[in-house]
Design a protein around this nucleic acid. Structure first.
Lengths: 100, 100
DNA sequence: ACAAGTATGCACCTTTTGGTAAGTAGGCAG
DNA sequence: CTGCCTACTTACCAAAAGGTGCATACTTGT
């Protein structure tokens, strides 16, 4: 449910508050429209995020975590912290394989 | 580094002690030889597991977590517990998409 | 002699994932 | 009237992940 290249990032940024599509896209650098929407649809289908379409023009859509989603993000946080605490070791490890 | 279908499982089982290849294969049900070895090689290259080949015949090889690997497993544990605590909700969520 | 078990390698193929580029709708500034 | 803004869709393509099956070298049980 949280696999793939973008879902963890999306979840991370939604972790500190609801965001609209454009804002999310600016947070998750490098993501394409297709990927962002695709991942959001999956997260929505899994009841992890809630999509709110304010029937407006120009279009305006908000994405927020559901309670279920928040519990997931909570469970993910230690892993995130581990990543931050080990960026160097991780970079080294990945280098050796990626370049050799 | 922990992505993919099998790495989390392998890490989980190595979490409670070193295991030899065959034992690991029996734990991680459904994994094929190719996948298991492939994933183990990657984990080894990333210094997450330690491979010990006791030059014996018949072949005998042990796999154990390195300290780095153990810290990773620790960071992964909350996610694992989240999974166990929400099996039902997760199953439902996956059903809706998987079958519809 | 033959089957079974050990850890691993290799070729081939399918499925999944990620990425690029274009196009949709309606309103608003020029 | 033109072009740009929003969120989103579509078609197409490349890369990675996963899976199946066969092969290796050597030993032990039958």
């Amino acid at each position: 449910m949280v696999g793939g290249k973008w879902k963890p990032l999306i979840l991370f940024f939604l972790g500190d508050g609801p965001k609209r599509y454009g804002a999310l896209k600016r947070c998750v650098r490098g993501v394409s429209d297709k990927m962002l929407i695709q991942q959001l649809k999956e997260l929505e289908a899994h009841h992890i995020v809630l999509r709110t379409d304010h029937q407006e023009i120009p279009p305006r859509v908000d994405y927020a975590l559901t309670p279920f989603g928040e519990s997931l993000v909570g469970a993910l946080r230690p892993l995130c912290m581990w990543g931050e605490a080990n960026t160097e070791t991780i970079a080294e490890a990945l280098d050796e394989t990626g370049k050799a």
